[in-house]
Structure formats: C-alpha cells, structure tokens
Computed example of a mutant assay.
Amino acid sequence: MEKNDSLAALSALAHDMRLDVFRLLVRAGPSGMAAGDIAAQLGVRANTLSNNLTILTAADLVRSEREGRSIRYFARMDTMRGLLGFLMEDCCGGQPALCRPILDQIACAC
C-alpha cells in the first residue's frame, strides 16, 4: 500500500461513526449488511450514514452491492491488511517477516 492510500484510510477511520461502521461490517463478515440495518444498529439517520459510507468507500475500506432497492456493504479486509502491512513494514528490527504471522491471522476469509 502506498503512503497516500494509507493516509486516506487512516483519515477515513479517524471519525467515531466511520470507525463504528467499519467495525460493524468487520463483525458482519462476508455477508455484509444492508444500509438500513447499519443505520438501525448504530442509531443514525440514513443521510448521515450515506455520507460516511461514501468516505469509507472512497478510501477503499468498504465496498457495496445493490440488492434490489437496497445496498449491501462489506468491509474490504484486503485494504485493511494492506494498511496494517504498511504500518508494520519496518517492524521487528527491520525483519518484517517476523510480523507476517500477525498479518496472516487477519487474512481470514472475510
């Protein structure tokens, strides 16, 4: 992951509602969640949620699929793995292979 992409992801997550949305989608796993269910779960208005989902999508942390009149959202775990890899690339005294098991644990089938 490039530095600018990392900054975009970190910036998107540096907001309490967007962080809550992303964590909720991580918990939802591969089935994702419909926008209305996210709004209900977090107790937010649809237009406020929509704006925050747009920011998360622009940072490539979230993807969406249309299901009829609804939109289902999914956490982009590949982007999160890339962000964590970028943050940890110089870890372990310059031996990033030592951190690989941590990143591999995150590589779930999400």
Rank of each mutant, 00 (worst) to 15 (best):
A35P: 01
S64T: 11
Q41P: 03
C91R: 14
R72E: 00
C108T: 11
I55N: 00
L24T: 11
A75L: 04
M33K: 07
A34Q: 12
L24K: 11
C99K: 13
T54K: 15
D20V: 08
V44F: 09
M80D: 04
P30W: 14
I55S: 05
I102T: 15
R45G: 10
D20G: 07
A109V: 11
L53M: 07
L56T: 01
D5A: 12
D20M: 09
L13G: 02
D37S: 15
Q105Y: 10
M80T: 06
L56V: 02
A40H: 13
T57W: 12
G36K: 13
R63C: 00
G36F: 07
N47I: 09
E67D: 05
A9F: 07
G32R: 01
A75R: 14
M88S: 13
R63L: 05
L25R: 05
P96V: 04
L25A: 02
V26K: 15
A28R: 06
G32K: 02
R45P: 02
V26E: 01
M33F: 02
T57A: 08
T57P: 00
C108W: 12
L10R: 06
L98G: 04
R100M: 04
A28D: 00
D90L: 11
A12M: 04
M1E: 00
M1I: 06
R23L: 09
E2M: 15
M1F: 05
I38F: 01
A35F: 05
I102F: 15
V44C: 07
D90Q: 15
H15W: 08
P30Y: 14
M1H: 08
R63Q: 10
I55P: 02
Q105L: 10
V21W: 02
G94D: 10
P30T: 14
I102N: 11
